[in-house]
Write a protein that binds this DNA or RNA. Structure first.
Length: 434
DNA sequence: TCTGGGGTCCTAGGACCC
DNA sequence: TCTGGGGTCCTAGGACCC
């Protein structure tokens, strides 16, 4: 016998909208000839980033290798991911939501929350009708579909939007929460990962309803703050706020890359690490940030990893400046004979990269050169492709390539103050040796 | 989901300071 | 010197999310 949890329908009204196969849908919206066909994105990585519902129906899922997907589904249309365009659609989707209320949270590129509490009078409509209008506006204007959930808290709204997909609409009013949670297995709950589900299962729980019927104190003892918050959220007592501020800056920037085949080769692993570091710094500069600390991790075949972290001499956005540190970190954890499958670089303690503040006794000339070098690297790579211009030591990676063009020797260049990238463009393959 | 890549938040415990 | 109580900051690591 289920016990009601709440009597009121909507003391608060939170909407969660979630793009249906977002990347693939955007591709289909831009090229209507793709509609109704199995489309996937992720060509550039060889792994499915997103599959259209037509492709999903044939068993194609996120994360599986392309060649496998092609086997499952013969006329599969494979496209490279076009994040610029997806971001544009994303922005327009949130703009539409903001026409209903300014209380909109951009949770990720393809999903968001809107707090429409108290807007029934304004729209002369029920909360359901308002949420449905939001859903149909997105469809009408962008030609993509979203699934929508409406309930009393973010956690409930998110569960609701997942309840029926694609193009689903699910409203869970307060007086129906108990019925809904009873049909919700633990692992569906936003915030219950594999570990928590295991823990709760051991306690004899099966559904979200079982969870909320335990006392709050019990959830708190077992899981601390997360448990307490989720307990309240699931009972329709909103504790997670809808966050309207745009997420302006990152806390960390990282770059991780699995090798095509595992390696024991010290030089190779180091070269991959260096290349990852460059990628991380490129991203850092794109966001006009600089880092105070850098960490690296080397992942072994069994997925365990060794990691170290250290402060940079001064906050920087220059990969060249970080080379000595990355070398030290690498030497401190690399084990001869061990087989590695991936390397990772994490830049942390990020801050805005405004006017550089120089401390006394710093080598101004050298620092200027490094900043200049970074600018040139970004410019050249912007025109010729990532890593065309890179640190000397990571060129080890190109030595194994077969083509004659790639076998060209790299050249050491010194950059002069004020020198532009274009003046250098006629050089074959550049490297900056530090 | 035997494992791709990029993130965030929370907590426990140590260092250090009155 | 081992004795009180209390606070802050930082770090490592776990867990989870898209």
């Amino acid at each position: 016998m289920l016990q009601p949890i709440m009597l009121y329908e909507f003391p608060r009204a939170i909407v969660h909208f979630d793009g249906d196969a977002f990347f693939a849908s955007v591709e289909q919206a831009m090229d209507p000839s793709l509609k109704g066909k199995p489309v996937v994105t992720g060509k550039e990585r060889g792994i499915i980033a997103c599959a259209s519902y037509e492709a999903k129906a044939l068993g194609v899922k996120r994360g599986i290798p392309l060649h496998e997907a092609v086997k499952m589904c013969r006329p599969l249309i494979v496209l490279p991911s076009d994040y610029e365009t997806y971001s544009l659609y994303s922005k327009r989707m949130f703009d539409i939501a903001r026409r209903f209320t300014p209380m909109v949270e951009e949770y990720s590129i393809d999903e968001g929350f809107a707090d429409i509490s108290g807007l029934r009078r304004v729209f002369h409509a029920s909360y359901e009708d308002i949420a449905r209008q939001l859903q149909s506006s997105i469809r009408a204007e962008l030609d993509i579909t979203v699934s929508v959930g409406l309930s009393l808290s973010k956690s409930l709204a998110k569960l609701a939007s997942k309840f029926r997909k694609p193009r689903g609409f699910t409203a869970v009013a307060g007086n129906h929460i108990h019925l809904f949670l009873d049909r919700t297995p633990l692992e569906k709950v936003w915030g219950f990962g594999p570990n928590t589900v295991q823990l709760l299962t051991k306690q004899g729980l099966k559904t979200a309803y079982d969870f909320v019927m335990r006392p709050e104190k019990w959830a708190d003892r077992l899981m601390g703050k997360v448990g307490r918050d989720l307990w309240n959220e699931l009972r329709g007592n909103a504790v997670y706020p809808v966050v309207t501020e745009e997420k302006s800056t990152y806390a960390t920037v990282s770059k991780c890359k699995t090798f095509t085949s595992p390696s024991r080769n010290r030089e190779y692993v180091y070269a991959r690490l260096l290349r990852n570091m460059e990628s991380a710094f490129i991203k850092l500069r794109r966001h006009k940030l600089r880092a105070r600390v850098m960490g690296i991790a080397l992942r072994y075949q069994d997925f365990s990893e060794d990691a170290v972290e250290a402060a940079l001499n001064r906050p920087t956005s220059s990969a060249q400046e970080a080379v000595p540190l990355v070398k030290t970190l690498f030497d401190s954890i690399f084990k001869d004979g061990a087989e590695y499958r991936a390397v990772m670089v994490v830049l942390g303690k990020l801050e805005p990269d405004r006017e550089e503040q120089f401390e006394l006794f710093e080598d101004r000339v050298r620092i200027d050169k490094m900043i200049g070098a970074s600018k040139v690297i970004d410019e050249v790579n912007g025109m010729y492709g990532k890593h065309k211009l890179s640190l000397g030591s990571s060129l080890f990676l190109n030595r194994n390539r077969k083509t004659a063009r790639d076998a060209l020797p790299w050249r050491k260049i010194d950059l002069l103050k004020g020198e532009s990238a274009r003046q250098r463009l006629n050089l074959p393959r550049l490297a900056i040796k530090v």
